[in-house]
């Protein structure tokens, strides 16, 4: 009686087929980008459909670098994404600890005050923030890019609270009996036990910050202060008197690679770390 295992393996095969098709379809829009990035710029528009670079070359990267400070953009992206991530963690981790492990008047109200901010679309705050940035003469500074991007921490606080709550109370009980203060409980017991959670949040935050587009477009003016994702938008040429597809695709590829590497190396980790975060224990 091998009917059940057979049905199972057919079932499994079907799942693989669906997943494979979906994965290919998902990745496909990027195929042209990759092939164009390595195709000589002069022949890119000669054909509408190109799945493989003809006459592969790296020249698009050098053309892009000679026109725009793309390495500076890369550095700016790394810098701003790192600062935004650090800022979010500095705010969210202690807050999550207090909301998760301390009793104090107003805890519930303050928690919901922070959590409810998750429901604000970022575009809503853009105009007043923009006016403030302009009026404070902070226009076109890294600060203008970084600081207003930090307080979107609703998810982070919620998640850190869950992470701290999921730790067994006995751990902290023991420390309290040993005479550890709150700060030491936080630093020596809390944080070391939620490292995977912090790492997962860092990766998510870094990827999000790396791709900040609308706000960056608005407040970064100087060509040398742009990030990769905002710089890519400046490839749009006024007259269209030349074809920039090759260098544009090369720079786009450059903007993907770092986050892709981070994601691939951390993906297993993220999934594992997210799991306990959302479930109630």
């Amino acid at each position: 009686m091998s009917a059940v295992p057979l049905r199972r393996s057919i079932h499994r095969l079907l799942i693989h087929a669906v997943l494979l098709a979906t994965s290919l379809a998902t990745v496909f829009p990027l195929v042209w980008m990759v092939s164009s990035a390595f195709t000589p710029n002069e022949i890119i528009t000669a054909r509408a459909v190109r799945l493989w670079p003809e006459d592969p070359t790296l020249s698009n990267f050098t053309i892009a670098a000679s026109r725009h400070p793309i390495w500076m953009w890369l550095w700016n992206s790394v810098l701003t994404a790192t600062l935004i991530t650090l800022g979010k963690l500095l705010l969210a981790v202690p807050a999550g600890f207090a909301f998760g492990r301390m009793e104090f008047p107003g805890r519930r109200a303050l928690f919901w005050f922070v959590i409810a901010s998750m429901s604000f679309p970022t575009v809503l705050a853009i105009i007043p923030t923009y006016i403030a940035v302009v009026k404070m003469q902070a226009f076109d500074t890294y600060g203008a890019m970084v600081i207003p991007s930090i307080p979107y921490i609703g998810f982070y606080v919620f998640y850190m609270r869950q992470a701290f709550r999921s730790l067994p109370a006995s751990m902290f009980e023991a420390a309290r009996i040993d005479g550890s203060g709150l700060w030491r409980q936080f630093m020596e017991i809390g944080i070391p036990n939620v490292v995977p959670a912090i790492a997962a949040l860092s990766v998510i935050s870094f990827m999000g910050a790396w791709n900040i587009y609308l706000w960056g477009q608005l407040v970064l003016e100087d060509g040398f202060k742009k990030t990769l994702t905002t710089g890519i938008a400046t490839f749009a040429d006024l007259e269209g008197t030349e074809r920039v597809w090759g260098p544009l695709m090369a720079t786009s590829l450059l903007s993907i690679v770092p986050v892709l590497v981070i994601f691939l190396s951390a993906q297993r980790f993220i999934v594992d770390a997210l799991a306990p975060g959302l479930d109630e224990r």
Binding site: T45, A46, A48, A236, E239, G240, T241, E242, R243
Partner: peptide
């Protein structure tokens, strides 16, 4: 942008647009 790309790749036969394209259109494909 799409119009220019279509013209340059030989998909579009005729287009009316800025005279500045005379610097590139005649020399491409």
């Amino acid at each position: 942008k799409d119009q220019d790309a279509a013209f340059e790749s030989g998909a579009l036969a005729i287009c009316t647009t800025s005279s500045t394209r005379a610097a590139t259109f005649p020399f491409g494909g």
